[in-house]
Nucleic acid binder design. Structure first.
Length: 377
DNA sequence: TAAACGTGGAT
DNA sequence: TATCCAAGTTT
């Protein structure tokens, strides 16, 4: 049983002692100064709103727009998406990241067709039961599509609320987040839920920005604790950082007759369900440890492809990621007798020219693309 | 519940 | 260059 902290309630109440409520201020501000020309704001349907909201999870607007346009062109409605092969969906999603979203997107489309005859439900509770739709996304879809009064909670809202209410704890903490949800629920305006929901995000994206917020332009500025106490640079409190484990793997570029060996990765984990270069000898290392390829693992890999003639290490092909590091090296194969065998397994063969039509992780895609010009391989 | 999950932009 | 983190959800 969670109750709203008295300090938060007091700040919320302060809005009513001095003119319009927080909600009404945001609504009015959005209608004049908010964003109105984003692709998913025109010709608004539940399908379009849903598609955009899934893509926008942990992903910036500018990154989403081209993907959104391509998806809408290829899948104009929920039926075409539900009927499509998952491979097509993954290929179109490739490069956006968080690939579980793409699988859930496909599953969700199929459920909406099967259970709701292709009509997304208006009830946030029903929406949240669908794959890939959590509490915040359910509220956003519902508010934008059907005008349902429901609160969102994303990075923008957390930042705006943390500053306005002077919340001096990390908003990702469970108890703090519980408070934020209570706040969000209590602050919904009586009218204009769509402008309000959009307004909170517009405010966070264009005025109450992470660095150098433009408080002069903020409709909440007269009531903002962070503005009053000069805490905008300190709030919201940063996520406590943890040491990232270092993992290195070998990813051989096996080329035969100008084609590249690929394998499909398991559905969960990094790059889940995507095609990528085969992975050999994953290992956890200290950050400063020297990288020594696991020769046993390399031999085991070579056993599977007996036509492979030689292995060369090219340190140039090193990609550093948030969680691990890849050493990519070429394996030059002669002959092609193993190609048919490969096609029957979870391995497949693709030409570099096909790179942009496959469900490939972004780094692998760019590598394959460069292979077209690079004759040294 | 905390950790996992991609990629690219901003500082 | 290193670090943060963005229209969060899932396990």
């Amino acid at each position: 049983m969670t109750v709203l902290h008295p300090d938060l309630a007091a700040t919320a109440a302060s809005f009513f002692s001095d003119g319009p409520s927080l909600g009404d201020r945001v609504v009015q501000w959005q209608r004049v100064h908010g964003r109105h020309d984003l692709p998913w704001q025109k010709n608004r349907t539940a399908y379009r709103v849903w598609l955009s909201e899934i893509m926008l999870q942990q992903t910036q607007v500018t990154a989403v727009i081209p993907y959104y346009e391509r998806f809408l062109q290829r899948f104009p409605d929920v039926f075409s998406l539900a009927e499509a092969p998952i491979e097509d969906v993954m290929a179109l999603w490739a490069g956006l990241g968080y690939y579980t979203r793409a699988r859930n997107l496909h599953r969700c489309a199929q459920e909406v067709v099967a259970t709701y005859r292709g009509e997304f439900p208006a009830d946030p509770v029903l929406l949240q039961a669908l794959p890939g739709i959590g509490r915040s996304t359910a509220a956003a879809i519902s508010a934008f599509s059907y005008g349902t009064r429901a609160a969102i909670m994303d990075g923008n809202v957390k930042r705006v609320f943390a500053r306005v209410f002077g919340i001096r704890e990390y908003p990702g903490n469970k108890p703090v987040e519980d408070q934020l949800w209570l706040l969000a629920d209590s602050l919904l305006p009586a009218e204009g839920i769509d402008a309000y929901t959009q307004g909170l995000m517009d405010l966070g994206a264009t005025v109450c920005t992470r660095s150098k917020p433009v408080c002069m332009l903020c409709p909440l500025q007269p009531h903002c604790v962070a503005n009053r106490e000069q805490l905008t640079a300190e709030l919201p409190v940063r996520k406590p950082k943890k040491a990232v484990p270092s993992k290195r793997v070998l990813m051989p570029v096996v080329m035969v007759n100008g084609q590249v060996l690929l394998e499909q990765r398991p559905p969960s984990g990094i790059w889940g369900g995507l095609l990528s270069l085969p992975e050999i000898g994953g290992m956890q290392l200290a950050d400063d440890a020297l990288f020594e390829p696991d020769t046993n693992a390399v031999s085991a890999f070579a056993e599977k492809f007996t036509e492979v003639q030689s292995v060369r290490l090219l340190p140039d092909f090193e990609h550093v990621f948030t969680h691990f590091r890849l050493q990519i090296f070429p394996v030059i194969a002669e002959g092609s007798r193993w190609l048919p065998q490969v096609a029957e397994s979870r391995y497949s063969i693709a030409s570099p020219e096909q790179a942009d039509t496959l469900a490939l992780p972004a780094p692998v895609r760019s590598l394959l693309t460069t292979l077209v010009q690079d004759s040294s391989l």
